[in-house]
Write a protein that binds this DNA or RNA. Sequence first.
DNA 1: CGGAAATTTGAAATCGCTCAATGATAGTGG
DNA 2: CCACTATCATTGAGCGATTTCAAATTTCCG
Lengths: 257, 257
Amino acid sequence: LDVEPLPVHRLLEFTRLSDRELRAFHQAQSHRISVDRKKLIRAEGDPVEEIYFVIDGWAASYMDLPNGRRQIVKVHLPGDMMGAPSMALERAADSFVALTPMQLAVFPLEAIASLFEDEPRLALTLFLCAQQERVALMDRIASIGRTSAIQRVAAFFLQLHRRLKAIDPGMDNSFELPLTQIELSQVIGLTTVHANRTLREMDRLGIVYRYRSKITLVDINALSELAGLPERRYVRDPAWFLGARPDTPKPHLVKSA
Amino acid sequence: LDVEPLPVHRLLEFTRLSDRELRAFHQAQSHRISVDRKKLIRAEGDPVEEIYFVIDGWAASYMDLPNGRRQIVKVHLPGDMMGAPSMALERAADSFVALTPMQLAVFPLEAIASLFEDEPRLALTLFLCAQQERVALMDRIASIGRTSAIQRVAAFFLQLHRRLKAIDPGMDNSFELPLTQIELSQVIGLTTVHANRTLREMDRLGIVYRYRSKITLVDINALSELAGLPERRYVRDPAWFLGARPDTPKPHLVKSA
DNA sequence: CGGAAATTTGAAATCGCTCAATGATAGTGG
DNA sequence: CCACTATCATTGAGCGATTTCAAATTTCCG
């Protein structure tokens, strides 16, 4: 049915999951969908029946305000769970648009709920992922609320770079950014015009280089200095995490032990 | 040991929990602490070993930036879980300060993890609470990123009012706000001076009335109009939620059925 | 190639910030 | 209970960052 496994690196960040747990996660997906660039995946206000796992491609989650302005709340990359916040809501809080062609796995809410009954360690992992996302949102609030335009851009680029490196550790200091400056400005809470001026300023200072949609972080140190981001070390097998259950080891593994 | 029950109204927002589930939650707390006003409960960078449940009083969660500015990330009220985002971290992302004298229940992380093993419906409820908080953070990002000073203040007051009313439905349109204007400005991402001017402007417009630390929302309609907040209806017993287990009904309840 | 969308630039207006000072309030110790 | 002091609220004036409006350019996409 689904040959291609899901990119679950984020689920394995906190602890190792057993084959059974990973299988349970895979079996929770109901189907997969491909989405064209610029296509709306879900709109604000839609009833919430499922969440999405990003297999491939980028998406933006955004909210439109009554004053006509738009805030992009998160940029989703492969390995991200998308849409979970609205699980608590009758109607979705945010819309999703594909920034590139995408491949998504769809998880019905019942399936997620079942995981809480059957796979407590997986449930706890999902819980920690949600907390991790809260930290990211808190950092963004601090960035938008208390830093200048250039600092926000620096922070955004650095964090993207960090996340992309978590996906592909072999990555260098440049990456394709499938966001227009309009969208970038909606991420960092500035006008398009000012986002543009800020980017040009960064060009001029020689800390980023842009060509087409490719961003090169020329001077990562200067960028880090500017952004002033705290480092966030995630827990790894903390003492309090639920222990792996010894159950049903595979015969051939027992033999080789 | 603990006579006084915890104000769990937020846990019961999504579904009814059984006596057993509630008891399990109560038993997960290790002890209680009282905190004086202005006292630091936990500092950014501290190792994370426990989370807190607010029984009584207000607290602020904030992050200090390298540029010396401070962002208040959340104002905690009775019934809120405090500190959960940092569960995913080696070291706490935010600090907590008591805005009033407080009463807290302390939950060791092991105890929370155990709940995931023993009480899946409770675990799912905690998961939904985390998602609910994510929505709140997303709304704040939109507010700070895309609205004017006066709109931010209006949104902040309205949401506080909403939350206080959830605690005490009999409340009228006024409440004690134990925040200085300095702190208010740190919530909404403005300077103290500008926060003050904005408040005075709202006075002048006759939409809020202030006396000492008491805030009266004189014209809630005008305020709502200004803030332009989306309404957020939380799910209630959605079809996908884990069903209550029929187990161990109390004898006397069976009799009366 | 043509049209639409995105980027870039300029000029002027505004909102919010900084600096600085004054007045008001509340908490503290006597 | 009062005086004292630190903190908080308020105000003014000037500045600066960001916005707004408008108009080129350039790039992207069909």
